[in-house]
Write a protein that binds this DNA or RNA. Structure first.
Lengths: 304, 304
DNA sequence: TTGAAAGCGCTAACAC
DNA sequence: GTGTTAGCGCTTTCAA
């Protein structure tokens, strides 16, 4: 019944007959029993900050697809950027005997996480040398910022998430680098960190402070799609008058950026490849205990 | 170690000591073994067409939250509106001994699905009398359509998904009802079904045929957020000139609708309550074998 | 080819 | 309070 009939020299006739009876009885091997017996669960854990963030929703969708191809089920969980919750989730997943984990960690979790095969994406700690999928954060942030300066803007602000995330750090670095390259002094007042980016109020306050200072900001780089989308909403509903003089850029791309006003230049992450590679790296790790070097992808600039 | 120490009259001191040792040894009960032994998995399955659809991404997020509160893990899967895939997924979930399933089915799956506790949302077959969470589809579609007519439009088109989904049928009914109420003859050429709504090409063709007929359509109702968002994209990039004369309405709401041009009136589904109720209904079913009557929620019209 | 039996790690029941 | 044991449903090994 496990497809190894021929291997054991069982008559074709017999095999057929057994399978038929099994189907008639609607027999299904008990999954838990099989796990217990074989020691395999064919399940992996996927840990993201928030599946309802379009970037992650996309990745989750694709990882599930590729995982299924490899015969894995996926246990999807959200951390809400909450370190404590993340730890509990990880414990729970391991406890459930998942065979490996793909994670976009809230903190640099991976330093020496050796309890279980693990692949990290989106937020890679610099010390991590293997089993990760990353993008050229710094370079991309540089290009986006540089694009804004090249449009003629003198004051380019940066709207960031909690800046201790490694990817965010790199992006901030890229921004700073672009400032210097354009002979603009780095002004820390222009680098704003939004702690809870789900609160529109905070974002509105931040934008207001930028747009209505003595020497107003005329260009903004957003460090992810959520910040960008919500900001566009705020600009349209509250600061509409400013709209035509503003240049915006965003890390991550969204379909809507194609038609929103003000125009927004963005960096598209290759989510298809990211997802695929995450699964493949984990597969190597799980099935062959083979640790692979990290993978880097380039983002694609969409200039608008 | 299972928290039943007091129940068994075990000395507090002993309990503490044991727990301590367990922690020191980093002991974790094997999940599969426990499942096998107790017959419980504390896992439920969640089956949606596509987690990357914002409507479902939201629901998935919240269902996971409420399920966790009840002590369940959630196995999330995508059917891609594919009946065959859905059947396989269901089989696989049952095989995994999930204790119940929450599903937005591709077809009316639920008629007599008695293998396992199941709660249906979003697409409810009329024959389903219990254990579902639904919204007032027809009424909402009526209100949206009526709103468009009241704006003075004579030709209101309907962009729909595959119309054999029960919720879609109801929405179409609401649309038709509004036509009649406004003394407009129902024109089946104005009811367009987009088979694969992921293909922008199809959508573009459909919109083109509507906007460039002899007597062009000036108002459109979209039957879900994806159709609406993509259509807005198409209108902005291809038919920009028409934009100012168009009135649009959409089932489902998206944040971006607050600022997109042309303006779009929408119906907001109470996703928080939908998610919460799905989990609660399933909980009753799983824990107490208690079948509850279906629940209806009202959408909220956002007029723009 | 077929059948029997051990054992995966846990829970629950029961005897001590 | 504490220790022993059967058995959950499967896989795997070994004997017939």
């Amino acid at each position: 019944m496990n497809g190894k009939g021929d291997e054991h020299n069982i008559a074709e006739e017999t095999q057929r007959r057994i399978l038929e009876i099994a189907k008639k009885l609607n027999y299904k091997a008990n999954f838990a029993a099989r796990c217990l017996s074989t020691g395999r669960t064919h399940t992996i854990g996927l840990v993201v900050p928030d599946v309802s963030n379009p970037f992650f929703a996309n990745i989750v969708r694709k990882i599930e697809y590729y995982a299924e191809q490899k015969g894995y089920s996926v246990l999807i969980t959200n951390t809400d950027e909450n370190v404590k919750k993340e730890k509990e989730i990880l414990k729970a997943l391991i406890n459930r005997q998942v065979e490996g984990i793909i994670i976009a960690p809230t903190e640099a979790i991976s330093q020496n996480f050796d309890q279980i095969p693990i692949v990290v994406f989106d937020r890679i700690h610099p010390s991590q040398k293997t089993n990760f999928v990353n993008i050229n954060n710094q370079e991309t942030a540089f290009a986006l910022t540089d694009h804004l300066f090249k449009q003629g803007h003198k004051k380019v602000a940066l709207l960031s998430l909690t800046s201790f995330l490694p990817n965010i750090k790199e992006r901030i670095e890229g921004y700073k680098q672009a400032c210097l390259q354009n002979h603009v002094e780095i002004d820390n007042n222009l680098i704003i960190e939004i702690k809870n980016h789900n609160k529109k109020e905070d974002l509105k306050k931040a934008l207001k402070s930028l747009f209505f200072s003595k020497t107003p900001v005329t260009a903004v780089l957003f460090l992810n799609n959520v910040l960008a989308a919500k900001s566009i909403w705020i600009i349209n509903t509250c600061f509409k008058a400013l709209s035509k003089d503003l240049s915006l850029a965003s890390f991550d791309n969204l379909d809507i950026f194609d038609y929103t006003e003000p125009k927004i230049t963005s960096a598209l992450q290759p989510s298809e490849m990211i997802s695929k590679c995450c699964v493949e790296l984990l597969y190597e790790l799980v099935e062959h205990d083979r640790s692979e070097p990290g993978i880097f992808f380039k983002t694609q600039l969409i200039i608008r």
